[in-house]
Design a protein around this nucleic acid. Structure first.
Length: 596
RNA sequence: GCGCCUGUAGCUCAGUUGGAUAGAGCAUUGGACUCCGACUCCAAAGGCCAUGCGUUCGAAUCGCACCAGGCGCACCA
């Protein structure tokens, strides 16, 4: 089936054609005036502008050709030239039944599916995940799931930061603490390595120390830079040591992402692009793209049309080491070879705009990226504290992601306890604190965190507010979860009572009708969200579905409805709402517990 | 200095090609449970869309100017 939007547009387009206005008009959108219409078409105004005629007459002519269309209960015209469409109730119900019997719940694939590599996550090895990594994971996971669900071939890669100066810093600090490790012996050769007896937690302590020391001590910094270069040149000891702590760190990172229900297809890092670096750089030189500048190797990427100065793209440092741009470029080579993607999406915080602009230009200029490959940069804003500044711990340090997740978890546990004491009759709330409580708390915390993030426009900064995110009232993750859980509960009870499902009947009330309209919008919204790369559209849609459902629930006693046909219709509709909401939540990376 | 982003209700934010009366949530005020999960629902109030000028039948949306805040500007990632 097609989206409601598309079906209606098809009718209206035909009417424009029949009225002699050509085939480029007739797209329809949800009405801005729900008191007047369900959907509207504004193209009579566009026609009037192009043909220099009266928009009202155009609208009238088109409207006249829509009067017999079975989709509409009424088609009317408002000045200066709005075409207002009111849908037929039977038509709506019919669509609902189609959605129910459709394997994809009425969701349709996008028009031109393609192969997309999504580069997100981007954690640094040997550093714990902190709140700065949150948005890349949450938004990236959503964009990946969305694109995949709508029919694209999508590869999600974590792109670990495992090959830059941070690695040299860690090696330097390890050497300072344990200079006698076998890795630092001059005669170290492969096979001599021994298991590093440090934990991920130790590593997470080592990096900040190293980073701080390097800032204050130039000698230490020089040593770290040297260590980085040695690693990149695969010095046996450094390389073996690196592999060793890589393993420790990656194991921990995998566990952290699993907590967040974030799942990468590949766990490649910057280091995996190393195999492509030499050939690539040689190509840059022989192709005449790269030249030396102040001892470093650079590619000029400035264009005459630039309004601002564009610094050259640095490929190799004056000491011979590779940089951020080098590994990003070599990774493009690798991805083109392995997947030949149509698009590569990069999800990083918006402060890296310039870097990616340089990398994309360089990739196109040097030809490592085919003409047809589209680079799409999806920058996002930062998550801030209530003071409007990046979220910090109480003592001013960077907040770890695990601490943030723990906060959400605890907040839910507190809520359960207080609601249990406030209303002892609410025995079902207590269920949340029994055997499955930890898993439920994780799911609710995740929902709160992810929805609180995604409901904001991707590119903007937002304020993290625990109480707000965790609230069961308002536009929050827990509210949506609660709504779906309540529907599940209703359906369970229906089953206990042996109630039957039946075909969905035309709406019996305005609220029910609104519910049908809302569910019919979901498919279009997913497509728009993909196109605009705006997960917040999905959040709005979910909230609208939940609100209308809750109103419907309040107005109707579903299980006690005497009219059996009506009741079975409602049960079917309930199952559809549940499935649609769960599907949308899944795209946002939010899992729904059976109870909560 | 140059460039990019942001500015919409008391607060946090939506606003999909320029369209009709700019929408939510929270907070505030008032109302609704003998009953399917009230962690719910209904209603009221709240706005010179930072400011000014322009483009046009029509601007929160497009252009110019200006103010305020954030971020970035080659050997970090």
């Amino acid at each position: 089936m097609h989206t409601l939007n598309r079906d209606l547009s098809t009718y209206v387009k035909q009417a424009f054609i029949d009225a002699g206005y050509g085939d480029s008009y007739g797209s329809v959108k949800v009405s801005d005036r729900i008191d007047l219409a369900d959907y509207q078409c504004n193209d009579a105004m566009a026609v009037a502008k192009a043909m220099r005629c009266n928009p009202f007459d155009v609208a009238e002519a088109v409207s006249a050709r829509l009067q017999d269309c079975p989709a509409f209960r009424s088609v009317s015209v408002a000045r200066p030239g709005f075409i207002n469409l009111r849908l037929n109730d039977e038509y709506l119900a019919q669509r609902m039944n189609h959605m129910r019997s459709d394997d994809n719940l009425g969701f349709v694939h996008c028009d031109n599916p393609c192969t997309i590599v999504v580069d997100y996550g981007g954690p640094n090895v040997a550093k714990p995940l902190h709140v700065g990594h949150l948005r890349s994971a949450i938004i990236g996971e959503t964009m990946k799931r969305l694109a995949r669900y709508l029919g694209n071939n999508v590869i999600g890669d974590v792109h670990l930061g495992d090959w830059g100066l941070q690695m040299g810093l860690v090696i330097t600090e390890i050497k300072r603490r344990w200079p006698d490790l076998v890795y630092f012996r001059p005669d170290f050769t492969e096979g001599m390595d021994e298991t590093l007896s440090i934990s991920a937690e130790d590593l997470y302590n080592i990096y900040p120390t190293a980073s701080q020391t390097a800032k204050e001590d130039p000698v230490y910094m020089a040593e770290a830079q040297e260590a980085t270069l040695m690693l990149q040149n695969r010095h046996p000891g450094h390389y073996a040591l690196w592999k060793n702590f890589m393993q420790i760190s990656v194991r921990d990172l995998k566990a952290s992402y699993a907590e967040l229900s974030v799942d990468f297809d590949t766990w490649y890092g910057e280091s995996d692009s190393d195999a492509y670096v030499n050939d690539m750089v040689e190509g840059f030189i022989s192709g005449g793209f790269a030249h030396e500048s102040e001892g470093a190797l650079v590619v000029d990427v400035a264009l005459e049309t630039d309004s601002a100065p564009m610094p050259p793209c640095l490929i190799r440092k004056s000491n011979g080491a590779m940089l951020y741009a080098t590994t990003d470029l070599a990774t493009i080579v690798q991805r083109v070879k392995d997947y030949n993607p149509d698009k590569i999406w990069y999800l990083t915080d918006s402060r890296q705009t310039l870097h990616f602009d340089q990398v994309f230009r360089c990739a196109k200029k040097t030809g490592i990226a085919p003409e047809t490959l589209q680079f799409e940069y999806l920058p996002f804003g930062t998550m801030n504290g209530k003071d409007g500044k990046p979220l910090k711990t109480r003592d001013g340090g960077v907040m770890r992601l695990s601490d943030l997740i723990q906060m959400m978890h605890d907040a839910f546990a507190d809520k359960c306890r207080s609601s249990a004491t406030a209303d002892s009759e609410q025995s079902e709330a207590l269920d949340g604190m029994n055997a499955e409580s930890d898993e439920i708390a994780r799911l609710v915390g995740n929902a709160a965190l992810k929805f609180g993030d995604l409901v904001n426009h991707r590119t903007k900064n937002y304020v993290f507010d625990l109480d707000k995110f965790m609230s069961f009232n308002g536009k929050t993750g827990p509210y949506l979860l609660y709504t779906v859980v309540r529907i599940q509960s209703l359906l369970r009870k229906a089953e206990e009572r042996g109630l039957k499902y039946g075909p969905i009947l035309p709406a019996a009330s305005d609220t029910e009708r609104n519910l049908m309209l809302e569910l019919n919008k979901c498919s279009t919204i997913l497509l728009t969200a993909l196109e605009e790369k705006a997960p917040n559209y999905i959040c709005e849609s979910l909230f609208n579905c939940a609100s209308v459902f809750n109103k419907f629930y309040y107005e109707n006693r579903i299980l006690d409805e005497a009219d059996e046909a009506r009741r079975s219709s409602w049960l079917t509709m309930l199952s559809l709402i549940r499935d649609i909401m769960k599907q949308q939540l899944w795209i946002l990376g939010i899992d729904v517990p059976e109870k909560m």
